[in-house]
Design a protein around this nucleic acid. Structure first.
Length: 290
DNA sequence: AAGGCGTGGTA
DNA sequence: TTACCAAGCCT
């Protein structure tokens, strides 16, 4: 492997021939559309995002359209994507863009990161993919690809660090447009080829330039991130409650929620948490979406 | 700064 | 079946 391997070019060429045709990659997608796709894709497989994203874009083509709705509509339209607080924050972001930015999605990292639910990754993704700026866009896929190809490690660390951003920035072409393409390509490579558990090095454009491949492709020993319990946790019960309220046209009485889980303490804790988070409100006839 | 936060698919 | 994983963010 060569020290100055043109990683960006190799991956970008591969991307040109192998990219999935995701709807938000189509020409003419607005910055708002890109932002929504990025938030929906946080911790959620892209396959499940597609239909929901299409519905949202048709229904709320600009931030102001969403901002004009009750937050509960965003939560309901979120469906089963998971982590519904993202819907809440996306609605809040829409309110902020409509109110503070003249309904135009900001194009600076600082302004983007100031929006609810927009962090290090999503801010740079929007700046790069929507505004075609040159920024390192580092998600779990990119971290894994860089960890393997450059550092020769089987996996990256648990969270994105400043060092990850610097390492990735180094790989990007100088040209902003080319850098944006390279970032999308690195993500796609991690999603389709350089996967966590079953990488397909035989079809990888970086195989000849990959430090990890050269060392024999030893798979990571433990989990890449902290294993999460789910069954019987508060999160589980919160999800059960939200599923009921999403389907309900009218407020739901407390007794009607008793059937979702057998332990009263956990039920109560879940419900209280949801109300505290603003995902549920208690009104006259019972509990409902805000 | 470690842990909380949904949901469904795959091996 | 259980365990891990999937375009993170917030506190």
């Amino acid at each position: 492997m060569s020290q100055s391997a043109p990683i960006a070019r190799l991956v970008s060429d591969w991307f040109a021939a192998n990219a999935r045709d995701l709807p938000w990659r189509e020409p003419g997608t607005t910055a708002w559309g890109v932002l929504v796709s990025e938030v929906m894709s946080q911790q959620t497989p892209v396959r499940r995002v597609e239909p929901v994203w299409r519905e949202w874009m048709e229904r709320w083509p600009t931030p102001a359209d969403l901002a004009a709705e009750p937050t509960g509509e965003a939560i309901r339209a979120w469906g089963r994507l998971g982590y519904p607080r993202r819907a809440l924050r996306l609605h809040a972001a829409a309110v902020a863009v409509a109110g503070d930015h003249d309904n135009v999605v900001p194009d600076t990292i600082a302004a983007l990161e100031a929006l609810p639910g927009i962090g290090t990754y999503t801010a740079r993704a929007v700046a790069a993919f929507a505004h075609r700026q040159r920024h390192p866009v580092v998600d779990t896929n990119v971290r894994r690809v860089v960890a393997r190809a450059v550092a020769g490690n089987p996996d990256a660390g648990m969270a994105t660090t400043a060092a990850d951003l610097r390492a990735t920035e180094t790989l990007l072409p100088d040209d902003a447009e080319a850098a944006a393409v390279a970032s999308a390509a690195l993500m796609e490579l991690g999603a389709l080829i350089c996967t966590a558990r079953a990488p397909v090095c035989a079809r990888c454009p970086l195989a000849d330039d990959c430090a990890w491949h050269a060392k024999g492709e030893a798979l990571p020993e433990g989990p890449s991130r902290k294993p999460q319990k789910y069954t019987g946790t508060d999160r589980h019960v919160r999800g059960l409650i939200m599923a009921v309220l999403r389907e309900a046209d009218d407020p739901v009485a407390r007794v009607a929620l008793d059937t979702v889980w057998h332990e009263p303490d956990r039920r109560e804790r879940a419900l209280t948490g949801l109300v505290a988070d603003g995902l549920v409100v208690e009104g006259a006839g019972g509990f409902r979406l805000p």
